[in-house]
């Protein structure tokens, strides 16, 4: 029988309870207790006065954010070996931070897992209603919902078949079961190809967008057109060769005119004009992110007002 509590990460002695052996009572009791605890905490939060609720959320935000601030700013232990103990309190904090990271990340993943359910519920509600009411293009909604159920089933069955001792054997296609072929057909043959098709559409969109952007309507558009033209031409071997021959006719290898080869102009444009501009924008974005992160961490942000 298929073990529905199969996990991707094998448990070890130091693993938390959610990594207990599959199907063990330890795991089931742990999940049940954690669920009850979570519901209890949410109930308590809802019972708290509205004013204090904000402070509770702010406190948790500060603690969670504080961990990541420490993670990024606290020095990392150098040359740490698996059995090492910290030599002083400073290094003790370092060890604690790096050991806690997988657990804190797991919390984030669990939360995201719960929220994914809400997202799928939204998808089903929108498309289910369209099917029930037989609205325009309802058949596409049916295809979407049928595909999602089918892929969830086939994907899990395929993954499950690859667990255990026989898993490595499936690296050889000769050992595949029908479910592995089904997964390969729908995922690799269907979804991945459709992804690639959507990606390739960009080529046509680039053409139409470039046509509009390069029309000479203003001084800025003209400068853009000229620089883009130089960069495009400098990447075309025939043009660069012809241009270089012309330059060589005008002067020898040390002549001033050699500065005007297409490659040199392109390098100057990208290194002297483009890169500093992008770095300038990056600085702005970085500082903006920092300020935004600070406001969120300290709960100074009043969103939606």
């Amino acid at each position: 029988m298929m073990d529905l509590l199969a996990q991707a990460t094998p448990p070890s002695d130091s693993s938390p309870f959610w990594s207990a052996p599959n199907g063990s009572s330890h795991l089931v009791i742990g999940i049940g207790a954690a669920l009850l605890l979570g519901i209890g905490l949410i109930f308590l939060l809802l019972q708290a006065p509205v004013r204090s609720r904000r402070w509770i959320v702010a406190l948790f935000t500060f603690l969670a954010g504080g961990y990541y601030v420490l993670y990024f700013f606290w020095p990392t232990a150098i040359d740490r070996q698996p059995n090492d103990l910290p030599r002083n309190p400073m290094e003790g904090v370092t060890f604690w931070i790096s050991d806690a990271f997988p657990i804190v990340s797991t919390f984030t993943n669990v939360l995201a897992g719960f929220l994914l359910g809400l997202g799928i519920y939204s998808l089903w509600r929108v498309h289910g209603r369209r099917i029930v009411k037989q609205q325009k293009d309802w058949f596409f909604s049916f295809v979407l919902l049928a595909s999602s159920v089918m892929m969830a089933f086939i994907g899990y069955a395929d993954w499950h078949s690859r667990q255990g001792l026989n898993g490595p054997l499936l690296a050889n296609k000769a050992n595949w079961h029908p479910i592995n072929y089904a997964f390969d057909f729908f995922f690799e043959g269907g979804l991945q190809q459709m992804d690639a098709a959507m990606f390739s559409i960009i080529a046509f969109f680039i053409l139409s967008a470039a046509y509009r952007a390069f029309r000479i309507r203003s001084v800025e558009a003209t400068v853009l057109l000229a620089t883009a033209l130089v960069v495009i031409l400098s990447l075309m071997g025939v043009i660069t060769n012809a241009w270089q021959s012309g330059i060589n006719h005008l002067g020898g290898p040390d002549a001033f005119v050699q500065n005007f080869s297409l490659d040199t102009i392109r390098t100057w444009l990208t290194n002297t004009v483009q890169t500093p501009s992008i770095r300038g924008i990056d600085f702005g974005i970085g500082i903006g992110s920092l300020a935004m992160g600070l406001r969120l961490w300290l709960s100074l942000e009043r969103t939606g007002s």
């Binding site: 997202g119 998808l123 509600r125 929108v126 459709m194 992804d195 959507m198 990606f199």
Partner: peptide
């Protein structure tokens, strides 16, 4: 309620 929609978590989908 349907004015906010989850579409897909695959980029090109």
């Amino acid at each position: 309620q349907d004015s906010v929609r989850f579409i897909s978590d695959r980029q090109f989908a």
